[in-house]
Design a protein around this nucleic acid. Structure first.
Lengths: 148, 148
DNA sequence: CGATATAGTTCAACTATTTAACTATTAAAT
DNA sequence: ATTTAATAGTTAAATAGTTGAACTATATCG
């Protein structure tokens, strides 16, 4: 073990927590009447087109009952809809409504402008290598989860 | 604007959210009876030695009333203590109790082992440059906040 | 002195989360 | 084929975190 691993860990813990807090606060400004978690839930569902509660619980690393609560709120807001699978009647598919798609599209535009104003302060090489390492970390965390 | 900035932003939004969720879930395993936010609050207070509610609210990017609620819970758990400033009696200083210091020290050891097992899967250069970019981002977010 | 600013708290309302117990449905075993 | 297991999702109670508005107390400034 290198002597400065300890220091690197300290720096990582501090900076990751701080950036997350500040980023969440910044993003929140663009999401009237919706929360950060709701935005990311819609984002994920939109990418997958259709998905289940269990899948969301795994991806978001929370219990299924937390997903039930969150999706209830999104259904109330008419952002998503539930559709029971006829082959396996235990399964309920979740998907965005037209209203959900519209809201997400508008929001993505705002968020992109926001992130773009930050990201363009770095060189493309720096950002590319930063995101690559970040993605590598995501894979390691994913594998770690699967082995548990 | 480069043609792939859009794609970089998408990748960043996805990966940052995912890593954060997974990391929080991992860290939580090491924190019996305490929450992630409580851990980071103690961590920050420990580094600063002594601090105020207003400072915490600014750093954690939340309202002061959120800090009151959180510090109440930490006082109940006897992890921190409040001490009124005699010069300016509006101000209340927060600091860790002995119990808080002990708990934090033990927890830091566990978290360090956890993060170390992840971080050592990268080369030192890769981690160093990753954290540097991360810190640069933190500074940009900090400045952005100050100008608002 | 009186107005204004600052530090912190309280309260009501809401979101997010966990755990345990539950319903409904499917798959597997004998 | 019928009982047993597992799977998908919900419900309910409890706790944590958060906001915003109204509030108390204290300090500063003109």
């Amino acid at each position: 073990m290198h002597s400065n691993v300890h220091e690197l860990i300290e720096r990582y813990l501090s900076v990751s927590f701080l950036v997350n807090k500040k980023a969440v606060a910044l993003v929140k400004c663009e999401l009237d009447e919706m929360t950060n978690d709701q935005y990311y839930l819609l984002r994920y569902m939109s990418k997958r087109n259709v998905c289940t509660s269990s899948e969301l619980a795994a991806v978001f690393a929370v219990n299924k009952s937390a997903i039930t609560a969150m999706t209830n709120r999104l259904v109330e807001k008419e952002m998503i809809q539930r559709l029971r699978d006829d082959n396996d009647r235990r399964v309920i598919y979740l998907s965005l409504t037209e209203k959900g798609k519209t809201w997400l599209a508008e929001t993505e535009t705002k968020i992109h402008h926001l992130v773009e104003s930050l990201i363009t302060q770095f060189s493309e090489e720096e950002i590319e290598s930063f995101i690559q390492t970040y993605e590598k970390l995501a894979n390691i965390l994913q594998k770690l989860e699967e082995t548990k």
